[in-house]
Nucleic acid binder design. Structure first.
Length: 489
DNA sequence: TAGCTCGTTGGACAA
DNA sequence: TTTGTCCAACGAGCT
């Protein structure tokens, strides 16, 4: 009796899973496999928040499979060797999986596919993660797009496939299951990590991904365009970690938006839905860029930025990481991140801008911190976001756009609900000074129980000085004039 | 090939 | 208080 190995990676779902559906169609017993292969992830093995999520996601996937009289076989180590060993052990003659697009994975999967085929096995890969795979989108010169708008316009001329259906009922299973590790044996949960905060904020797994999408489509997609920028409002989809781990796929989201427009006949049905799909477009664009410019994980897309005079300052970096910069909107975001493994998108931009422009600390430092702290840490999205903020990526902000953390706070958290939630020591301060507590008169600070520099830090940099220094540093980069450096602190 | 337009998310300042 | 205007680099993408 032969069998098909279905190799799960970042597609931890049963719905819209082309590899699994194809295996089912093939008819042979299916052996679902997950291999924890940290060396195979290149320089970007999952960080602590991602490992926590992965642990629970694997539990959820196993539960879902057991509901279909199947189970998830777990292994750890080199993916290629583990697959070969499992194939030999189970007499499997085919291995199916869904593709990934990170540089290290592409290189590894290519070797694995060749080795399996050399042994006479059928090795097939599918697209589960993207609406449009990177090699299917190009500009009129045949080159990859580097600007979002033309990229997304081009994508919208291409068809989006419907989600793949998996027939109901038990999955064909082998008579004997191969040996498997327990999820706990993968050692994904570390003792020092913030498991409690994450568990309060999130429920990993496909079932909750589907629930979250339904809830969002029902209540939040229509007002999305108007409220998504306000961090105190639960106005975003919160689907990012589910998408990263593939507990839901972009085709399912596309189909949900399409289903909603059936009544009106207009697609998308609302401005909110249109803006929401554009966000999905950014996710596509991030994968497109990562695929075509794999060096951007470490290096700026715009080569000139390798000359940027970044500062190294461990104390400033630590203050940023811990939410102790003295700028409430920045600190609130960094504390939300530490506490929940997630940060509102608007605040991600503000905190990232502050690190690279006000502190002039290299974006790679920020990317590394986010990578470890975010439950939705995704190499493509993280890279694009940080390069965009630093101004060295695709479609980056013009150099003279520098977020003013006070104005951003006043504009997007006018009533201070967000800041008061994450910085309780400032809660009693009136709105007028909440985003710049150092400007508050002494008697107000005393009334609010705040001792500047003790209960809450003074700003570690002055906005206007930092802004000038950032512009000067950009000028140094642009002209290559080393004299400009002398003027920089 | 040359030239033109444009760019997710802004800020400072004047009126 | 709100609104409009400048900032004015740089390179992608298109015609």
């Amino acid at each position: 009796m032969t069998a098909t190995l279905v190799w799960f990676r970042q597609d931890l779902r049963l719905r819209d899973n082309p590899a699994l559906a194809a295996a089912h169609q093939r008819g042979a017993p299916i052996i679902p496999v997950y291999i924890l292969d940290e060396m195979g992830e290149g320089r970007w093995p999952p960080g602590s928040a991602s490992r926590w999520w992965l642990h629970h996601s694997l539990v959820a996937l196993d539960t879902a499979l057991r509901g279909r009289e199947s189970r998830l076989v777990l292994a750890r180590g080199d993916s290629g060797s583990a697959l070969q060993a499992l194939a030999a052990q189970t007499n499997a003659d085919a291995v199916y999986w869904n593709r990934r697009y990170e540089p290290a994975d592409i290189a590894r999967d290519k070797v694995i596919k060749a080795n399996l085929r050399a042994k006479g096995l059928e090795a097939r890969s599918f697209n589960a993660a993207l609406l449009h795979e990177p090699h299917t989108v190009a500009n009129k010169s045949g080159q990859p797009f580097q600007v979002f708008t033309p990229f997304w316009r081009n994508c919208q001329t291409l068809p989006v496939e419907d989600p793949v259906m998996l027939p109901a009922g038990p999955l064909p299973s082998p008579v004997l299951w191969p040996l498997s590790l327990e999820v706990a044996e993968l050692g994904l949960l570390s003792r020092d990590a913030g498991g409690a905060g994450w568990a309060n904020a999130w429920r990993p797994g496909e079932a909750d991904a589907v629930k979250q999408l339904k809830k969002f489509m029902l209540h939040a997609v229509r007002p999305y365009a108007d409220v998504r920028d306000f961090p105190h409002i639960d106005g975003t989809s919160r689907l990012s970690p589910y998408l990263h781990f593939g507990e839901i796929g972009p085709r399912q989201i596309w189909a949900a938006v399409r289903a909603q427009s059936r009544d009106s006949g207009v697609f998308p049905a609302s401005r909110g839905a249109h803006v929401f799909l554009t966000e999905l477009g950014w996710r596509e664009f991030a994968h497109h860029l990562l695929f075509h410019f794999p060096h951007t994980v470490e290096q700026p897309l715009r080569a000139g930025f390798s000359r940027f005079p970044w500062r190294q300052d461990a104390a400033w970096l630590k203050a940023w990481q811990e939410g102790l910069t003295g700028y409430p909107i920045v600190d609130a975001g960094m504390r939300e991140l530490r506490s929940t493994g997630w940060m509102h998108n608007r605040v991600r931009m503000i905190t990232a801008s502050f690190l690279v422009k006000h502190l002039r600390i290299a974006w790679q430092e920020g990317a590394g911190w986010f990578w470890d702290a975010l439950v939705d840490a995704d190499l493509a999205n993280n890279t694009l976001g940080w390069q965009w903020s630093a101004g060295c990526g695709a479609d980056a902000t013009p150099y003279f756009h520098i977020f003013n953390p006070v104005l951003q706070g006043e504009k997007f958290d006018a009533d201070g609900v967000y800041v008061r939630c994450w910085i309780p020591e400032l809660a009693a301060l009136p709105n007028e000074f909440l985003h710049q507590p150092w400007m508050a008169p002494m008697e107000l600070l005393i009334q609010a129980g705040i001792k500047m520099g003790e209960s809450y830090p003074r700003p570690i940099v002055d906005h206007y000085e930092a802004r000038s220094a950032a512009l000067a540093a950009l000028e140094v980069m642009r002209t290559g004039d080393p004299d400009g450096l002398g003027q920089l602190q």
